[in-house]
């Protein structure tokens, strides 16, 4: 992927603007896939681009901006899910989401504004959900997914396979999804 942001290398604010326009919505989506909460997803996106801005000068181009930004997003989402500290921080603005970590209103919107199958995919346990949405919805390759999620490519394939099995079960009404 061409990193057009390189033309703004000496202008961090323009670089940031470009990156937010280029990847902003994807970052929010990626965070949403993790957290299933739009407000949290936007908070994560905010944090992602603040960190991107802080670290623009140290970005070593070992990976593309695309991979770098998505990795930051995934890590922040994981931190949020794992860390009680993050929950405390986010509590200030999102007190109602604290306990569940997922907003029931968003569940409803997923069904109304998205659809039943979309919601079933989103109902998958997170490790299966992430590979599924990135592969089928975002059309990423298994290699890209492995880089972004920092897991092996074979793990991606295995999870995709299991996710498909789960979805088959759910969509054919044979069984509920076991987390």
């Amino acid at each position: 992927m061409t990193d057009s942001t390189d033309i703004y290398q000496d202008q961090p604010s323009k670089q940031l603007e470009y990156l937010m326009r280029r990847f902003g919505k994807q970052v929010v989506k990626l965070a949403y896939y993790h957290l299933r909460d739009r407000h949290l997803a936007e908070d994560i996106a905010q944090e992602v681009f603040c960190r991107v801005y802080q670290n623009l000068d140290t970005f070593r181009h070992d990976s593309s901006y695309y991979t770098w930004i998505y990795r930051i997003t995934v890590n922040l989402c994981r931190d949020y899910i794992r860390s009680a500290y993050s929950r405390r921080v986010f509590t200030l603005d999102n007190a109602k989401h604290l306990e569940s970590g997922e907003d029931p209103i968003d569940r409803l919107l997923e069904r109304i504004e998205g659809g039943e199958v979309f919601q079933k995919v989103m109902d998958l346990p997170i490790k299966y959900r992430m590979v599924t949405v990135l592969y089928y919805f975002e059309e990423m390759s298994t290699v890209e997914i492995s880089r972004i999620l920092d897991i092996g490519e074979s793990t991606v394939r295995t999870r995709l396979c299991r996710a498909r099995k789960m979805l088959k079960d759910v969509l054919s009404g044979e069984a509920g999804i076991i987390g």
Partner: peptide, 26 residues
Amino acid sequence: RMLKAAKDEAHRFFSKWSGEDFREKV
């Protein structure tokens, strides 16, 4: 086929999101 439908649903779901809201905050 269902996953393709789900992809369209996801596209519809996210299409209303501007992705701009957080930029000002940043």
